[in-house]
Computed example of a mutant assay.
Amino acid sequence: MALSRDAILGVNDLQVEKVFVPEWGDEVIIRGLTGEELDAYQGSRRQIRNAGTAQAEVVFIQDNARAGLLVKCIVDENGDRIFTDQDTGLLGMKNGRVLDRLYDVATRLSGMSDEEAEELEGNSEPPTASGGSTSSSPEMSSTALSPSYSDASAPES
């Protein structure tokens, strides 16, 4: 029997993972983005240059990309965001190595492909307006996930 609308909408399918950060002396909780949040984040990181011309290309805005995702994904024990979008610059001033490790977890939990994450990180050539890309990237490692938390009270971006 197939799932009903109410059954699908009633499932809390957001994944969370606790990550120990030795540099900070404790762990943080990373929550994957909802589909709506993921689309908004990815859209905020893309810009079309030379739109309407044969030279049109999609450019990925890398400024604080890691911190921009992490302010949306770091939550407390109740699943509530602990940062607002306005905290992006402040979080971006933290250790880049730490942010990179946490970003990898956030992209995996949010369902971003390795290729998308690498493009946002600037590790591959951006796709053309037709959507092609030259990136080939290794699988991200996977770890066991903790139970999901509700994000009903997460601040809007």
Rank of each mutant, 00 (worst) to 15 (best):
R45P: 08
A54K: 15
D63E: 12
T34H: 02
T34M: 10
L70Y: 03
G35I: 10
L70T: 06
I61R: 13
N64Y: 11
Q86K: 15
L69A: 05
D85P: 15
D85N: 14
L38Q: 13
I74K: 03
A40I: 12
R46S: 08
A56N: 11
Q47C: 06
I82E: 08
D39G: 07
T53K: 03
T84Y: 10
V58N: 00
D87L: 07
Q86A: 13
I82R: 10
E77S: 09
N64R: 06
K72F: 03
T84K: 14
L69R: 00
V71D: 04
G43P: 06
A51F: 10
E36S: 13
E77Y: 01
A54P: 15
S44G: 11
R81P: 04
N78T: 07
R45Y: 04
A56C: 09
E36W: 10
G79E: 01
E57F: 10
R66A: 14
Q62M: 05
D80L: 01
N50R: 07
G68M: 03
I74D: 04
G89Q: 05
G79S: 00
Q62L: 06
R46I: 09
L33W: 01
A67I: 09
G35D: 10
G52I: 01
E36V: 13
E57N: 08
C73K: 00
E77L: 02
E57Q: 14
D63I: 11
D76H: 06
G79V: 01
T34Q: 13
E37P: 04
C73D: 03
C73S: 13
T34G: 06
G79L: 01
D85A: 15
L90W: 15
L90A: 12
L69H: 03
A54D: 14
E37Y: 07
A51C: 06
I61N: 09
G68Y: 05
